[in-house]
Design a protein around this nucleic acid. Sequence first.
DNA 1: ACCTGAACACCGTTCAAGT
DNA 2: ACCTGAACACCGTTCAAGT
Lengths: 225, 225
Amino acid sequence: MARAARGSLSREAVLDAALIVVDREGLAGLSVRGLARELGRPPMTLYAHFRSKEELLDLLFERLFRRLFSIHHHASWRGQLEESSRQVRRELLEHPNWVPLLTRVTVPGKALEFYEHVLALMYGGGFVPEAAVLAVSAVLSHALGAVLVERMLSGTTPIPVQRLELVKAMVASRPHGARPVPAIEDAMPEFGHWSFDAVFDLGLHSLLAGLDESLPRSVGHRRPA
Amino acid sequence: MARAARGSLSREAVLDAALIVVDREGLAGLSVRGLARELGRPPMTLYAHFRSKEELLDLLFERLFRRLFSIHHHASWRGQLEESSRQVRRELLEHPNWVPLLTRVTVPGKALEFYEHVLALMYGGGFVPEAAVLAVSAVLSHALGAVLVERMLSGTTPIPVQRLELVKAMVASRPHGARPVPAIEDAMPEFGHWSFDAVFDLGLHSLLAGLDESLPRSVGHRRPA
DNA sequence: ACCTGAACACCGTTCAAGT
DNA sequence: ACCTGAACACCGTTCAAGT
């Protein structure tokens, strides 16, 4: 990574500005030149903070990760994982254009800190390392998958979330001769008051309960009642 | 959508070529001009198939969806959902560069057909519409989330998947003065023979079992033993 | 040494000139 | 009417000219 500029613009300021642009215009709307314009700086000055746009995107992912996964002190492993799940979902539903950043394949430095904290909590709860790693993967996966599907089916309109709007629109706008979809139409009345909150909660709780109950703990440890 | 070209190049051929490019070089490596070059056609001829690159990406997502979610005839609702989950994961681990396409926010036309089929199966199993929609969302979410996390932690190297390689590399390359991560290091020996298959299977089976057991069915219906 | 404007090799898309 | 080359307004990045 390039050295930080000595000039007036901190790396954090640049990254936060970039996140704002992505939030507003989508990932495709982010350009190095446009970002520089936004910041009132000549384009090349930004390269003090990254070597390439690709690296800028990695740094953005890192910054986003920091925002999605924060450590809640005094929380149990279940409390921490539940809180993080909700935080991820809340932030990403509020800023749907950040979702494409999640397909980056760098492990952000901040991730280690988060993992370390959760793993330690789980060891404290008696879980063996393998079980702990599995649990974290499963919870992370649940949260991100939920957001991805929710976004796919309801679009990017932020608040209020248009629940299943896209599916409704899709059914309504089918070409005239298209095959009928009676099963979907049976479910259509639900779409109005349908909420993804229920899916998310049900999934999260059964997952946490399942982990608590079924994952192996070290000898002598007993699950608290 | 633009009318199909009368020329020699079918829309399917264009989309398949584009998927190959994305698979090979990543989404960032796909350009209209480059694709035309690949196909030995002048760039503007491709616009017979889409109005803009944005629309091309939507069509690509649609084509990908068709590949990820196919209907397995003679399968029960559980069989269908399980088979689709595995198919999604298999395809996306084999072609990790396709993952960013999943962040598109159009509902592919093919999606309706898939939903219709699964919903009908679930009604046949006695589920009320609301429960059926919830179940499909949950299973989709599980599969996509699993792939996202798996990819995030192990990189895009296709076969053999480098399990938790990125996390290992991350720990190894920490700057010298960085805070120690004893909990992660305790888990490191597992990383060698760690497999995401187990996480995926455990999640999938508890999810399907949970749905089967807890979701409301219509009056008079009884879960088959 | 640092900073940055000019330049290069791209890109998506418009549009008018070709047939 | 269709097809498509040239042109336009961008883009990421190199590099040498400035300080």
